[in-house]
Design a protein around this nucleic acid. Structure first.
Length: 503
RNA sequence: GACCCUAUCGUCCAGCGGUUAGGACACCGCCCUUUCACGGCGGGGACCCGGGUUCGAAUCCCGGUAGGGUCGCCA
């Protein structure tokens, strides 16, 4: 008997309302005092046989940073929406007013934008009262108070909620709740011993602020969310959510709880941990496509694909909830770096150069004063060298300094720029100077020819030449970098190197 | 403490009753290149433990152990 992969069976619990009604309405029938507001809710019997269009959401709380786990949750939701032609909603869970700020929301929006995870509905800016797209707003929970109050009244009217100590309590079911999960299958969640003492829980605090479980369910309900794809840390709580949906007479959405992302040592990843914040990838010079690629493979793998290198648009059509893993994954920076390298080498020259120029600018290397063709050629000699854009300067900085300002690495200098190399430097300079064509091939032939004539190993010539022109013992292919540097620059650098070597 | 989820190389995944247990990253060696890389070839490295079921278990069941999660007038 194969293991259950969840979606094989239907939820067992469509209680309270005849299935046909639930099916037909999709969204629960508003009970008495309920408003209409359903700009986008359509009761179209003619469409009832068609599967409901998928509506998923990412609902982050503005904590000041975008966690990789959150980013992956957003990614999975995005992928599922794209794969099904559904709608990806962004909703800001800022109920806890005290610690929310527009800046904290901006961090989330810019992080998602950097990753390329565009949302179909939601805020356009971090301003809770700012512009939005979509007909199910407001998309900031802090602006949905009226809706929560109305839903609270509904529950009270139904006898499902009662006031005590100034707070509003929900009459939680005492029975075990079955959570049909698309990833782990049916999960039966009985009350824990502590819950059994008093199963009811708070919907609205005595200060009037509604709690997470309540607003989360109300919003999913009001926004017509069909699939809830979220972290496994919410699995147990889903019993509360399902109970609430039922109290509203509504069919809960389908659930898919995805495993968590842990540190390499298996501990929980928190704000300070390496790689926890999406912003750190921006700062380190990672390509967003690399981060997307890596994250997509953490907890998911395609049965259809034969390789691991994808762009998000390539993943989307392959993305099935049934292919999501059940066990937590550990975050391995090394593998992310590998994906970055693979994506970086596939970058178009134009894009590689423009990102490279920015990376250099970040550390104070200005390329604007150089011929664009030179800048381009220079950077492209390093496209398959370093792993991160952060490292680009150590491969290419020498291209952008004056010929008399090349900085010689101390060790390289004592090794390669010695009196013994003076003659080599002079003869090389002379050979290069007389070359009719200043190309990598010609330069290589000239250098190797000279080595043969002199009866020395090419390394004897290469080392002083490289150090003289770049200041380092490692770098891009020597002949190519010489070609890019060009006749004049090389001549000046070799001359200076000769002088330095002689002293 | 109670409840829930999970368990294959160091890491991420494949495997869904019969495989020499496969791939990727990382690691080691060799080749290429007299730079560093890339690339090529090769290597070491895993089914958490114990019981069942079965002719046969990494795969199914039970128990244990371990890791993670939840049990808030946090989200």
């Amino acid at each position: 008997m194969p293991r259950r992969r969840g979606n094989a069976q239907q939820p067992q619990h469509r209680a309270h309302l005849p299935a046909s009604i639930c099916q037909l309405l999709r969204i629960p029938l508003p009970s008495p005092p309920i408003v209409d507001e359903s700009a986008a809710i359509s009761y179209s019997p003619g469409l009832m046989s068609a599967p409901a269009p998928v509506r998923v959401r990412f609902a982050p709380s503005p904590t000041g940073y975008l966690h990789v786990g959150g980013a992956r949750t957003a990614l999975f939701n995005w992928l599922y929406a794209r794969r099904t032609g559904g709608t990806f909603v962004l909703r800001i869970e800022d109920t806890d007013n005290a610690r929310n700020s527009q800046a904290a929301v901006d961090v989330i929006l810019s992080g998602l934008r950097w990753l390329g995870l565009d949302w179909d509905e939601g805020p356009l800016t971090g301003d809770a009262d700012g512009p939005v797209k979509g007909a199910f707003g407001p998309y900031f929970q802090s602006r949905r108070g009226e809706i929560y109050r109305r839903r609270a009244e509904e529950l009270k009217a139904k006898g499902m909620a009662y006031e005590k100590d100034g707070a509003l309590f929900f009459r939680m079911t005492r029975d075990p709740v079955t959570i049909p999960d698309q990833v782990v299958g049916d999960v039966v969640r009985p009350l824990t011993d502590r819950e059994a003492v008093d199963p009811d829980w708070v919907l609205i605090r005595s200060d009037g602020v509604p709690v997470f479980h309540f607003v989360n369910v109300v919003d999913d309900l009001e926004m017509g969310i069909t699939h809830v794809i979220r972290g496994e840390d919410h699995l147990s709580n889903t019993a509360k959510h399902i109970a609430l949906f039922r109290a509203f007479g509504a069919e809960p959405p389908k659930y898919a709880h995805i495993p968590l992302i842990l540190n390499l040592d298996g501990s929980k990843m928190s704000k300070r941990d390496q790689g926890a914040s999406v912003q750190s990838y921006v700062d380190e010079g990672y390509l967003p496509e690399a981060v997307i690629n890596y994250l997509s493979l953490l907890g998911w793998s395609s049965k259809a694909a034969t390789n691991e290198l994808f762009t998000r648009d390539e993943i989307a059509p392959l993305f099935e909830l049934a292919d999501i893993n059940r066990s937590n994954a550990r975050f391995d920076l090394k593998k992310l770096e590998h994906f970055h390298f693979e994506h970086a080498r596939r970058l178009s020259p134009e894009r590689f150069v423009s990102i490279g120029v920015e990376a250099l600018k970040k550390v104070g290397i200005e390329t604007a004063g150089f011929d664009p063709a030179y800048v381009r050629a220079a950077l492209l000699t390093a496209q398959e060298k370093g792993k991160l854009f952060k490292e680009l300067p150590i491969w290419t900085d020498f291209y952008f300094v004056n010929d008399d300002a090349v900085v010689y690495d101390a060790e390289a200098k004592t090794k390669a720029l010695t009196p013994a190399s003076v003659s080599a430097l002079e003869q090389l300079a002379s050979r290069f100077q007389s070359l009719p064509e200043y190309t990598a091939a010609a330069l290589e032939a000239a250098l190797k020819g000279l080595a043969t004539e002199l009866g020395v190993k090419v390394g004897v010539l290469i080392a002083p030449c490289r150090v003289g022109c770049t200041g380092r013992t490692v770098g891009p292919s020597l002949y190519h970098l010489l070609e890019v540097l060009g006749r004049d620059r090389v001549a000046r650098r070799l001359a200076r190197a000769r002088t330095v070597a002689a002293s």
